[in-house]
Design a protein around this nucleic acid. Structure first.
Length: 125
RNA sequence: ACAGCAAGCCGUUCUAUCGCUCCGCUAACAGCGGAGAGGAAAGUCCGGGCAACACAGAGCAUCCUGCUUCCUAACGGGAAGGCCCGCCCACUGGCGGGACGGAAAGUGCCACAGAAAAUAUACCGUCUGUCCGCCAACUGGCGGACGGAUAAGGGUGAAAACGCGAGGUAAGAGCUCACGGCUUUAUAUGGCGACAUAUAUUGCGGUAAACCCCAGGAGUUGAAAGGCCAAAUAGGUUCCGUUGCCGGUAGCGAAAGCCAUGGGGAGAGUUGCUCGCUCUCUGCUCCCGACAUCUGUUGGGACGAACGGAAUGGGUAGGCCGUUAGAUUGUGCCAGCAAUGGCAUGGCCAGAUAAAUGAUAGAAGCUUCCGGGUUUGCCCGGGAGAACAGAACCCGGCUUACAGGCUUGCUUUUUUU
RNA sequence: UGCCCGAUAGUAUAAAGGUAGUACGACGGUUUUUGGUACCGUUUGUCUAGGUUCGAAUCCUGGUCGGGCAA
């Protein structure tokens, strides 16, 4: 269950265009979350991005993306996937890091859990 | 021993759990096994490979490089050397630095200050001629006016007409001479050469990271290059420009008819420009006027058509190859002062593509702080830290960033012998 | 990833190698009962480190930051 394969990553250019034109998003520091319901083969496809404008060096961006990816991998099975299976729906998801500093893994994991909970509430409403 | 500087090298390791990318095996999306960032992967500053396009050739322009010899696939890189500059200094050395061709081809510039910044237009001075005045009466002195000679002195400036001494002169001046500095040319000697030394000779402001001259070099564009497959579109619309020539002639043919080469014109390519070169096109219809006259000439216009150019619109937004092993590297021997080269023998499988190499926990070693013990070597307990930085077609360099450690060399201080 | 440009006061924009300007803004003063307008004055700058030069915003080299173009 704690996997994160290629199928769960959002790589299609078309779907990305569709997602970022959907305008259904919310901000939960340090994440900006954009989401869209879309029929897929897997429960969710996610794209993680850290802006180059805020973190100039590739090392810092890679570090943050790895930490966020790890937090998502460990927590999607507890929160997001059971909800999606109950409602029989699939979702496109974008996690953009908007913080100004490099946060520790524990903080990122805590906030990501909160973001996923918020996401399930918004999907229902 | 400590500290500093320079050069070179290294730049954490191991285990567990959960994952990521690629490869292999198996019927399998599951399992097992294997591999998985750097000295700079960075900046993109040079050079090359590779690829596409272009290429008869010539001239002009543009850009780059700039002491010599060597190394190298090549270089703006490296090695050795020459010359110049600075520091330590006093030994005929050491260390550090240098975009280091030409100012005697030409042009330009040198603010302010200063008389003058380059063909010396002479401010104060110095010397002197003529005239006038005064003192005065030796062949004189002083002042004024108008001329002439003079770059030695003054002050200015970043820089003042090579420095200094003697001769010379009315006073002066490389004007002449000796010594010295730099420089041109020639000869001799040494060196492959840059260059050095000696003799003779020519001269003497700076600036070429000002234009420029000389010598050498550069085709352009970069993997989003380029090739293949799949999918999609079914060649749309608008605007602009050109095209009716010599001639339906020569020629061929019995005739019907076929119909050039070449020239002229237009366009395109040659991707900085020009010449030159190469390629393509030069076909048809209608209307009006004039001339001639019974189907032509000429001028104007229209129409599509063809060609060329520009804009706009529409579609696709996937995969594979290129693409990871070579100008590679450790060790030894040989050649060479060295960079480097040759031979022998081992080692080296990252290949992602919204872009993998991670997260958590523990241990060891390193550095450092606190507390305790101590034989001042260190030991025990606890806490903290670990740099710069992430492959993107591949190499060779350069530049920049870098906690800590190791080795070598030099210097300073202290202690011991 | 590859290639190519640029950087001047808070903002915009000038300056042939020779005293860094101009406009708007900010601040202070005068005028006004107060505010505005007007007038006067002040402040703040050549991205950074070297080099060439007597002298650098300008010329050259390295770095930093910003921007652009490429199926």
């Amino acid at each position: 269950m704690y996997t994160f394969k290629k199928e769960e990553r959002l790589c299609s250019h078309k779907l990305l265009e569709k997602l970022f034109h959907s305008r259904s998003s919310f901000l939960l520091y340090p994440f900006r979350v954009v989401w869209l319901k879309e029929p897929l083969l897997v429960p969710a496809q996610v794209v993680i991005s850290v802006p180059k404008r805020k973190f100039k060096r590739a090392v810092d961006r890679n570090l943050l993306k790895r930490r966020i990816r790890e937090a998502y991998r460990l927590n999607k099975g507890d929160i997001l996937y059971p909800f999606l299976q109950d409602n029989n729906s699939q979702i496109l998801l974008s996690l953009t890091y908007v913080g100004k500093e490099i946060e520790e893994f524990e903080f990122l994991e805590k906030r990501l859990k909160a973001a996923l909970v918020r996401l399930t509430e918004l999907c229902n409403g």
